[in-house]
Design a binder for these strands. Structure first.
Lengths: 128, 128
DNA sequence: GTACGTGCAAATATTTTGCAGCAGT
DNA sequence: ACTGCTGCAAAATATTTGCACGTAC
């Protein structure tokens, strides 16, 4: 697909670049409604997807729209296959100094952390 | 709230403990439908929330039901305030050996990783 | 007996999509 | 002119909730 440019898309990207609040689609919509009175949420979502495809922005998710639950309470990390969506446990040693490490910048109280690795799992690699 | 026990909740927990596939609510529902023919998805969701409150399971999310977008493409990490839901950037040095580090276990190709810190942000701490 | 849990169905919440007209190249 | 982009509204997806009945304690 050959993308054209549009005022709406350009402004959505500018807005995302100008903030570090990790906005939701709805926040972006509210911000731009004054500038584009007829703007619709559908347009915001469509453009966010296109910007993602173009590698201009990212999206904080787990690669699926479903909530996923985890019955292991021991600290561990996750590997998510971007092709088949499978989520696997990574039982590598927990980086226990992580909390203090990030403290100076965050200035809040860090209680726990989480790491996800993204890539292609062994099964999917075999299918190439 | 004073929780009682129920067969459904007990089996949902057992099921989650017995797998490492990080199931969705719907998968759990399908698995238990044979055992509880009248089971409803509502019950599954309700119990998943209760189990979470009891600290028996966890939930892979970002603390909100909204998609969140990020306009910064330089590698960086995130801090999520569990009280107000704010997401902040953590510009600590990227752990570049991370990919190879996790490889032996995952056996797939790791392309990138992500780290989130969870806790209480400075603003919320002040309010105590 | 009290009040929490369940199934069912309806309601919410969020995101996606079909369509007709508008706009970028 | 061709085809992507937009607004609008309806549909799709995922999760939550109200209610009447059942069940654990």
């Amino acid at each position: 697909m050959q993308y054209r440019s549009s005022k709406q898309r350009k402004r959505i990207l500018e807005l995302l670049r100008s903030t570090d609040t990790h906005p939701t689609a709805s926040w972006i919509y509210d911000q731009l409604k004054g500038e584009f009175p007829a703007l619709s949420l559908g347009t915001v979502y469509r453009n966010l997807r296109i910007l993602q495809e173009q590698g201009e922005i990212t999206h904080l998710d787990f690669g699926s729209t479903f909530d996923r639950f985890d019955g292991r309470m021991e600290p561990h990390y996750h590997f998510v296959c971007e092709r088949c969506g499978k989520v696997m446990d990574v039982m590598m040693p927990v980086l226990s100094d992580m909390e203090t490490f990030s403290c100076p910048q965050v200035k809040g109280k860090v209680l726990r952390h989480r790491i996800e690795f993204f890539g292609i799992c062994q099964d999917c690699l075999k299918q190439d």
